[in-house]
Nucleic acid binder design. Sequence first.
DNA 1: ACTGCTTCTGTGAACGTGCACAGTAGCGCC
DNA 2: GGCGCTACTGTGCACGTTCACAGAAGCAGT
Lengths: 331, 331
Amino acid sequence: MKRPTIHDVAAAAGVSRGTVSRLLNGDRYVSPAARVAVERAISETGYVVNRAARSLVTQRTGSVAMVLSEPHEKLFEDPNYSTLIRVAVRRLAERDLSLVMMLAGDEGDRERVVRYVRGGHADGVLLVSTHAGDPLVGALGSGTPAVSCGAVIGRETVIPYAATDERLGARQMTEYLVSQGRRRIAMITGPMDTPGGIQRLEGFADVLGRKATKKLIAHGDWTQASGERAMTELLDRSPDLDAVFVASDLMAAGALAALRAAGRSVPGDVAVGGFDDSSVATSTHPPLTTIRQPLAEVANKTVDLLLALIDGAPRVDPVILPTELVIRESA
Amino acid sequence: MKRPTIHDVAAAAGVSRGTVSRLLNGDRYVSPAARVAVERAISETGYVVNRAARSLVTQRTGSVAMVLSEPHEKLFEDPNYSTLIRVAVRRLAERDLSLVMMLAGDEGDRERVVRYVRGGHADGVLLVSTHAGDPLVGALGSGTPAVSCGAVIGRETVIPYAATDERLGARQMTEYLVSQGRRRIAMITGPMDTPGGIQRLEGFADVLGRKATKKLIAHGDWTQASGERAMTELLDRSPDLDAVFVASDLMAAGALAALRAAGRSVPGDVAVGGFDDSSVATSTHPPLTTIRQPLAEVANKTVDLLLALIDGAPRVDPVILPTELVIRESA
DNA sequence: ACTGCTTCTGTGAACGTGCACAGTAGCGCC
DNA sequence: GGCGCTACTGTGCACGTTCACAGAAGCAGT
């Protein structure tokens, strides 16, 4: 009927609460006899610790909040989140921590998150897709460890993070396009308040130098529709372009549609390079040459950082992982 | 320094704990004077209730577990999850419930979930993509309300659910293909232990009757690669087919690749119908004619069911929502 | 002045843990 | 036999709430 408590287990095993508690928390100083008695009692009664009671005394909650700052409509267009969620849940579970999901898409949400975190309801915070200047970062305070998956622009020194080397990836793609003999290379960027938006453009400029002119650069917002729009704009401004580096596969899918509509062949007339190596990259025609990010590793490193902070590390250093060029047919 | 407690608020407002608690929990019987004093004290001290302490006495946790049963590798290939997560988090937040994510991909995970739920750590369970015969369903017990997003095959009467009318959607697509004059219509199904796998095939058979022969049916597992494989197989078995209904857009993307490889034009030689209206549907060439599911509504209804059960409803009825044909260029 | 009712307030107990502390038993050693 | 040490065990308290209960204050009706 009622859920068994630590008292019930103690009674069933013929020991005191203290002994059961010590076993549960891995203390030394539990006699072999007591150990087997308690273990039997636990499995007989089906006992499982009451986390609320525990957290009341330990002042820890046993949970980590994952905060998604993406405005609601766009949320999850990006498959990266999925990997992160999967990895985070697994890794945290090993430590008996649970992952609670929170949205911070609008002001109301954000206030809820701040209350939750400042109220001490999470042992750690895992920020995702936090844009530059997001007031959330300051509002969270420093009482609870927080890390980000991907850098938080402008707050790189205050919020530790793991990320891919966006700039390197962009250089790899641009260099590849150059090596294929392309001369008029355009770029479609992401939003300029995100690391992917900024740093992929930097990598592009690293390689092309003065040849990366305003006329050859257009901005998108990661959506497919924005990629199509940006491509149309570029074709209009620079009809003689012979390659385009698109900062995400989804936008690249949009760009392909625009190129097809304009009667340009890919990769014949125009080579197209994507970024992400997401599932769309293989469903487009032609399949996209793109940049693969080690998403699972980034996710793992992010969790590592957070766990280290939760364990009391005074500070941790950012981790940046290399990308890899994946050659398919679009370039 | 220390986080303020209800005592601090009471002291600051010049009242007792009881009064503060009553205000917090919306009891009647709080005088206007006390109300304003307490409200001021709360905002001055920055007080936020300690959920652990509360849940210790109320025997409620204030959280809902979302359990994803998909094996790890495949998790989130399906964009449906994203919508569900988003909707669930929002709706639950309104009720001050938080969403904790759990994976049940393998035996170890499953045991963790069962311990968690049976241990009373969640006020409700939201099952996702639970396959037929999943032992999890029985193991959860009946102590905690549970609902599923999408039917749990074989357990429709024990686990309430909200879902789309898969069978209707399949009929809509098949009828459309017939109405376009297609005569040899094949189908690529999903896994036959999922509602989408079974019921989409049923709808297909509803329309074609005896013409839906084994030779025209192949099975996939929702992945793009499986769609490609299945299409190749079908072309091999029935080279004269002039249409194919693929049970998911992602598999349809694979089917398109196989058709292209075989030199068949779409929709000229072969019409292709998808299912889901997911983001890939517009990134393929040609864009997919497909079936749109009211995902957000399904998610909302699922949450409704769960909240009703949590609020004490003795039982709730399943909800089934209609689908809609979306005509693009592939058929 | 007493009774009964409504509205509001304060208080003690309980929820199930972990932790500090006090204590016991056994053992070896002087 | 006393001492110190190690290995282990039991107990009281605190964590921050909610809830049931007892009561006070005000008011109306007798």
